[in-house]
Design a protein around this nucleic acid. Sequence first.
RNA 1: GUCUCAGUAGCUCAGUAGGAUAGAGCAACAGUUUCCUAAACUGUAGGUCGGAGGUUCGAAUCCUCUCUGGGACGCCA
Length: 565
Amino acid sequence: MSFEKTFAEILDLLLDGVISLEEIERSIEKPRFMNHGDLAFPCFQLARTLRKPPVMIAEELSHQLQNRGDDSFERIVAAGGYVNAFLNKSKTSKKVLTEILEKQNSYGNLNLGKGSTVTIDLSSPNIAKPFSMGHLRSTVIGNSLSLILEKCGYKPVKINHLGDWGTQFGKLITAYKLWGSEEKVKETPIKELLALYVKFHEAAERQPELEQDGRDWFRRLENGDKEALQLWEWFREESLKEFKKIYDLMGIGFDSYAGEAFYNDKMEKIVELLEKKGLLEESDGAQVVRLDEAGLPPCLIKKSDGATLYSTRDLAAAKYRYDEYASAKSLYVVGNEQSLHFKQLKAVLAKIGFDWANGLIHIPFGMMLKDGKKMSTRKGKVVLLEEVLKDSILLAQKNIEEKNPYLHLKAETAEAVGTGAIIFHDLKNFRMNDIEFSLEDMLKVEGETGPYVQYTNARAQSILRKASFNKQNVQIHLNGEADWPVITELLGFPEAVKRAVENSDPSQIAKYVLDLAQAFNKYYGEVRILEENEGKQSRLALVQSVSIVLEEGLRLLGIKSPKEM
RNA sequence: GUCUCAGUAGCUCAGUAGGAUAGAGCAACAGUUUCCUAAACUGUAGGUCGGAGGUUCGAAUCCUCUCUGGGACGCCA
């Protein structure tokens, strides 16, 4: 049982129904300052009903609690309208460390999902385009979310909804036929295909008829034209090879690579269904579903030339996922700029009469900006993730040579630290914030960074190696001085996991892990852990627990924890 | 024009189902290594929480208006 709950319950006994237990629990907070204790209950809201000043209420309550409180609390005092509770440090320390050592990385697990399946749409890069920094966000947020969901009792299914269909391929084929060379594409596929794509858009500004050529080629592709299909397959294959290199580097896998093209033969049914329900209307030659009652602009289903659109494929995909995976929820980790699209998607599904449309949840995130503006593939204004990762790993390598030249597993460690820096940089802030691209910021290894957390863990591991800690039969006695801030951080891990899953917010874990690392580094600076005295085993239990939680936190972010660095 | 996201220290951001003295990191300056990894730690300095009203015992947090920036608003995804 949590200490908040114990505190709430003994308060509830005294308050005798003036406010409910739930209300008490909700208003219990963590004081900002250590000298105010570990838990606080503000009495201001009681002042009116009890018709007494809050200071007096707090004093009365704390006075009565002193005798009644069990030994969970060291003392309970009133201070300016608050009842402040100080946890019994030695008992709490013993309890939390024992729990962590026993549960290991399952400490903080929740069973919210009860085994239900959740599909997660993530990463979803566009074929024939480079893997940009923008896709990085969806990839790392989605990956972390799936790990967090798994920890909370869900069964995540990661779907990489590849952008492998659409008018862009018509444009690309047009460009390839005009200016492309087979050798060049074979040599550096993504680079060459991107160059063609950019050239197309440059040329189309002067020759607008090219746009029509592009649309024509896409229609031929949809109609199964052999030449178009061959080129498309080739582009797709080459692109996928390159993407897999990046996923391997980041240690991310998927349960499905069913991209847009996968739904080509599944769209007709949805369109028929819309027709049958009389939801389809013609508008300027195109087929649309009107959504006035939801206060949304109409959703385009078919273009005037009969070709399908993004929305059409997403409708088919949503239905397929529900049918195939029986998913209770379906998450879409897709940029903020597509919010309207997902509102429309849900509205159309609801209009068809699918009650599961409610389970569709768009997890939006802010954009990666360059010079304050959105990056645009069309203008070739992109930063390539692969190069950023390479730079970061190289820097990690350099740091290892400088700081720990005799390290074993140098290459492996550099990879873990280099990618860790990039992933952490993306996850540490709330997802809705736009991020101005800055290589300098991403490569930082000091302060609030992934390498800082990894380093903290490596320090802890180093101590454990030297002491060969044995967790059996440890008598844990901590004095609750230097170690107390670390203990309270450890205590907070389950709450951090809960916040992360409830808000679909991996940054909660990142922030937590930083706080824990900071608390531990401070402790490390103040206390000689390996000193031979009666407290040594207890201190080692603390170090071991910190390492377990740091590693688990990093794991939930999709970051590795090297034992040495 | 409509909708949406954001605005907190020089920079990057925490803190927002209202609560005590608004916190970190970076950058700056001053320190700490005969001692468990200095990718660390300690200290100094730095704030009209975009602005104006309102609700409240209490507002960075809630409401209204407003300013600034990003984005989305039919045949791209």
